[in-house]
């Protein structure tokens, strides 16, 4: 603590390391930079104060109500390009929230998201098949030059049969149903019910296997 009190309390002015605080909170620092920030925060009161202020500001921003953008500012907005990244959880936090708010209002994007998710689910559920030799493009190219016509007909027939087999496989093995997290639904119900006048909350301990 003696080292800390020796440091003048003048904010982080003059400390270049303050530039790394935001990246630190985002978990984006390299190991060397991380050590620098942690070490510096142990000694510099000014940076500690600024760091706390930054952290609290970010926390406050996260909990602020979302402002609706006037419609005239986004007349034709469509987020189709971001939907795939949204499903993959690859959007940054701000982009995720923006898209989430947009989805609440845009039936077209919701429908596209639903279709995209359904298509991806269907693809994932397809049985893994090894390509038959006749579909090997290199061999086909070579064989086409020397196969007699009856073999070409057989090849086409076999390809058709493979397509039918894959289709039958999909029909026999429907895509697995998505699984809902009932805890999440419970939290939403409680969050809304908590604003009812006179609300008295009790937990459903053990509701889903937990224990108080």
């Amino acid at each position: 603590m003696a080292g800390m009190t020796d440091t003048p309390f003048d904010g982080s002015a003059g400390c270049d390391i303050a530039e790394l605080f935001s990246a630190y909170l985002d978990g984006e620092l390299q190991p060397g930079e991380l050590d620098q920030v942690v070490s510096h925060l142990g000694t510099c009161l000014g940076c500690i104060a600024d760091f706390r202020a930054l952290r609290e500001m970010r926390a406050a921003v996260r909990t602020m109500p979302r402002l609706e953008m006037p419609e005239w500012l986004l007349p034709q907005s469509h987020h189709g390009a971001e939907l795939s990244a949204f499903l993959d959880g690859e959007l940054a936090t701000g982009e995720h929230q923006t898209l989430q708010a947009h989805l609440a209002e845009c039936a077209e994007c919701r429908a596209e998201l639903h279709d995209l998710d359904a298509a991806r689910t269907a693809v994932r559920s397809l049985p893994r098949l090894e390509p038959p030799e006749f579909l090997d493009t290199h061999r086909v190219a070579a064989q086409h030059r020397r196969l007699p016509r009856r073999w070409q007909v057989a090849t086409v027939a076999a390809s058709a049969a493979a397509v039918v087999a894959i289709g039958a496989g999909v029909l026999r093995s429907p895509a697995p149903e998505p699984v809902a997290d009932l805890d999440s639904l419970a939290d939403r119900h409680v969050a809304r019910a908590s604003v009812e006048a006179g609300f008295t909350v009790v937990p459903a301990a053990g509701v889903f296997g937990g224990a108080p």
């Binding site: 805890d183 939290d187 009812e196 006048a197 006179g198 909350v201 009790v202 459903a204 937990g210």
Partner: peptide, 19 residues
């Protein structure tokens, strides 16, 4: 299934009795 304690609200009585 060892899920966290889920705060499931209930209005164990006192719900909005205003108005």
């Amino acid at each position: 299934m060892n899920r966290r304690l889920s705060a499931l609200g209930t209005i164990t009585a006192v719900a909005a009795l205003i108005a």
